[in-house]
Each structure stands twice: as structure tokens, then as C-alpha cells.
């Protein structure tokens, strides 16, 4: 294995890791505030990807305009789906036991995944990359796909954006307060259920962004939702449920791990997220960044 190949795989892995981060951060954010782990998060991401595909067929596919328009329109559309789900369903189970919450989101997986199948069918699709990202960048004498580098750069931008939102705005303060002191917040006259709805929508918006980016990164099919939700579980388990910083670290570990390990191990590399997840849960169940509950 040459150093160059390794760097190539590393960049590839980092861009997959960043994509995973965008999705997993939505999952962990929603968990942090709502205390519900949303199995259907992967399905929402998949809906985002397929919406991006449909939009691209309506527009001139492969142009920058069409790509940017997707990025502008699709995530809010997914957030809107999230709004409906939160108001109609999630809101009813916040006080129920974990089991019922999990089953509710699981029911949504069944429904949403099948809706996607009925609308878009089972064939793999993809969206042509906009011209300016279609080529490759020269790095250390290697041609790296521009689009992968772009995705790699979007991740930190999103991370920074979320950090600014959570730590530098009033809404962010409310969201963070809702994590730790929901009762107090309610007593202070803050509309907690609105905070929850908007957090959920923000999580879905992130899933939508992930979907749009994915549609041009690789083929999309009916399996991508489940694949990403399980990877996201691994991510949030590694980083600690509810921790955005942990999600960033976890995503990079998983993204790079899967990609780089493919060199020596081939498809066995896919075992990696599960193995890491099991290991972390056994040794440090609250994750690398989380705190033990007691």
C-alpha cells in the first residue's frame, strides 16, 4: 500500500465521515432535547436524497444552480415532514416509556421507507455532480475528486454553524437549556413544546442536507436510510448521546475506519461500526464525550 493510496482513502473516509456527521448530529441533537432516539432519522435522510434526485430531474441536472437549489429547498422540505411528525406523533409519547417511543419511530421507518419505495422504486439512482465539482483536485500529486473535498469542507462549516447557533444565539440557549432544565424552562414561561418542535425540525433539516449531499456522492437506493441510521447509532454511541462534539469525533472515526479498513479487509470493514459500538458500550457506555448518568 502506497502512502498516496492511503491519503486518497483518508480523504475519502473523511468526506464520508463528514457526511455522516451532518446526519448523526441531527440525531444526537434531537435526542439531547427530546430524549427520543429517532429510528426514522435515516429514513428522513433518505427522503432528502430522493427529493434531491427528483428536483434534479426537473432542473438541468449537473448544473451548479440545480445543486444549490436542491441544497436550498430540500432540507426545509424534510424539516416540514419532521414538523408534521413531531406535532402529530412524537409529542404524544415524550412521557411514555422508552419502549413505546422506540416502537413509534420504528413504525415510522416501516412507513417512510415503503413510501419512498412506492414513489421512487427500488432502482439505484444518482444525481450528476455540478460541473465545478465534477473534476478533481491535485494534492500531493494525486487526483482527489473535487466533490469529496467539497463535502469534507461542508462538515466543519455545519459544525461551526451549529456551534454558533447553540452557543451564540438566544434560540440556541433555549435549546441547550431544554436539555438540562426542561421544567425550569417551562416555569419561566418559555414555550417548551415550541423549542422541541423546532429542534426536531432542525434535526430533520440536517438529515435533508445529508441527503442532498449524498445524492451526488454515491448511488442512492432503498438501503441507504438503514445503513446510515445504524452508522449514526455507532457515532452517537461513540461520542455520547446528545453530544455534538462527540458526534463529530465519532463520525470521523467511523467514516475513516470503514473506508481505510477496506484496503486490508475488504467487505469485512463493514463490521467496524458494530464492533466499535459494542466495544464502547461495554467499556464506556456513556460514550467518549458523555457523562455517566450517576
Amino acid at each position: 500500500m502506497t502512502i498516496q493510496l492511503f491519503i486518497f482513502m483518508l480523504v475519502n473516509g473523511l468526506s464520508h465521515g463528514m457526511l455522516l456527521f451532518i446526519i448523526a448530529s441531527g440525531l444526537t441533537l434531537v435526542f439531547g432535547v427530546l430524549r427520543v432516539i429517532n429510528f426514522a432519522h435515516g429514513s428522513l435522510y433518505m427522503i432528502g436524497a430522493f427529493l434531491a434526485y427528483s428536483l434534479s430531474t426537473l432542473l438541468t441536472t449537473g448544473t451548479l444552480q440545480s445543486f444549490l437549489l436542491s441544497l436550498l429547498l430540500v432540507p426545509p422540505a424534510v424539516a416540514l415532514v419532521g414538523f408534521v411528525l413531531e406535532v402529530l406523533l412524537f409529542r404524544r409519547v415524550y412521557r411514555e416509556e422508552h419502549l413505546l417511543q422506540l416502537l413509534l419511530t420504528y413504525a415510522l421507518v416501516l412507513i417512510l421507507d415503503d413510501v419512498v419505495r412506492v414513489i421512487w422504486g427500488g432502482d439505484p439512482r444518482n444525481v450528476a455532480r455540478p460541473e465545478i465539482f465534477a473534476g478533481s483536485v491535485d494534492l500531493f500529486g494525486m487526483a482527489l475528486p473535487t466533490y469529496n473535498v467539497f463535502v469534507l469542507l461542508v462538515g466543519p462549516v455545519i459544525a461551526l454553524g451549529m456551534w454558533l447557533l447553540l452557543y451564540r444565539t438566544r434560540s440556541g440557549n433555549l435549546i441547550r437549556a431544554a436539555v438540562w432544565y426542561p421544567e425550569t424552562l417551562g416555569a419561566l414561561g418559555v414555550n417548551v413544546s415550541w423549542v422541541m418542535t423546532s429542534t426536531f425540525m432542525l434535526g430533520c433539516w440536517l438529515a435533508g442536507v445529508g441527503g442532498v449531499l449524498m445524492a451526488s456522492l454515491a448511488n442512492i437506493d432503498l438501503g441507504i436510510g438503514m445503513e446510515k441510521i445504524i452508522e449514526s447509532f455507532a457515532v452517537v454511541v461513540i461520542g455520547g448521546l446528545g453530544s455534538i462534539g462527540g458526534a463529530l469525533l465519532g463520525s470521523l472515526i467511523i467514516g475513516v475506519g470503514i473506508t481505510v479498513l477496506q484496503l486490508p479487509f475488504g467487505r469485512w470493514a463493514l463490521v467496524f461500526p458494530y464492533a466499535v459500538m459494542a466495544l464502547v458500550l461495554i467499556l464506556r457506555p456513556w460514550g467518549l464525550f458523555g457523562k455517566p448518568e450517576r
Binding site: H98, I230, V237, A278, L281, P285
Partner: peptide, 23 residues
């Protein structure tokens, strides 16, 4: 390993093990 965890974490670890076996 699993019974060392409770609730959600138990659920996720069982999932991880079964998927590991599946793989």
C-alpha cells in the same frame, strides 16, 4: 455484556451484537 447496560443502551448493544453476527 448486555445486562450490564439498561434501557436504551441495552437495546443498542443487542442491536450491535446481532448485526455483528449478521455481518
Amino acid at each position: 455484556f448486555c445486562v450490564r447496560l439498561i434501557g436504551l443502551y441495552f437495546a443498542i448493544l443487542t442491536l450491535a451484537f446481532s448485526q455483528l453476527l449478521y455481518m
